[in-house]
Amino acid sequence: MLELIFFSLLNGVVTGLLLFMLASGLTLIFSMMGVLNFAHASFYMLGAYFAYTISIYLGFWVGLIVAPILVGLLGAVVERYGLRYVHRWGHVAELIFTFGLAFLIEEVVQFIWGKDTKAYHEPEILQFPLFTFFGQNFPAYKAFMLVISIGIFILLLLILTRSRVGLIIQAAIHKPNMTAMLGHNVPLVFMGVFGVGCALAGLAGVIAGPALGTFPGMAFVLGSIVFVIVVVGGLGSLTGAFVASLLIGLLQTFAIALDYSVNDLLQLFNISFDADSALRDLWTLSLPQIAPILPYLLLILILIFRPTGLFGNRET
């Protein structure tokens, strides 16, 4: 049991921090634009595909650096020549634009790379178990994911809270007009934040690709979870996004690891059921089976009991 909790905890934190890399960019972009960027997870997918192609020719490590930069530049171009233009027609137009962009990116990815899962693997230097605990291995690549995610988290925190750029970003989000009149180029700040947000999503894709698979549906798989995180954490709140990312990362891994069913729960109260009952499927329903829907269940509960999210403070 101890090793189960230990490994679930580690895996949960790895997943949670990976999700935070996506959610942090999404929530910052939401704070600026006032709408959710539906295409955010598509940039995550592009990160994985770019890194896969680069790794074929130049190796994993070049891909790790170059792919997020390419994705970030692409994001900046999308903001500058797409979203900024669409912005004048309001939030609905922006929303539809990002929605369309998500489809477009998915189609382009299928067109260029095909529908099958790509053989994008972790580098050989990281293909060994870092440690063994109760006979179970912890892969070095997961530790690497953990280090990158924590590093990015600390870097983001330092930039946003300790640097002048961070101050200007915060100011531009809350009072764009006043910030501009103090001489700061707010549209450039927005383009930069959008680009960096996309680059972070791209980086998440680069490191998640070998672990979770590089296939055209990867944006869809993670995209909806990231929206759940941003809403659960509170729209526009970075702290909220961080807490919700870890919460959902842990929730998902523990739910998969703990093989309990409704029947086990009922037996605690000495209630048994008829094995031939019509509700048999319900009694035997196990936690790993419902694991994928747990984040959405949490989303519904949050929307009912705390619509602003855990750390949200804005009326949206």
Binding site: K175, A180, M181
Partner: peptide, 22 residues
Amino acid sequence: KEHEIAHRGLGYVPENRDVFPG
């Protein structure tokens, strides 16, 4: 644009005490 005007050497103090509260 506003920031370009500010860089030319014009400063503006708004009437509503528009500080960054946080």
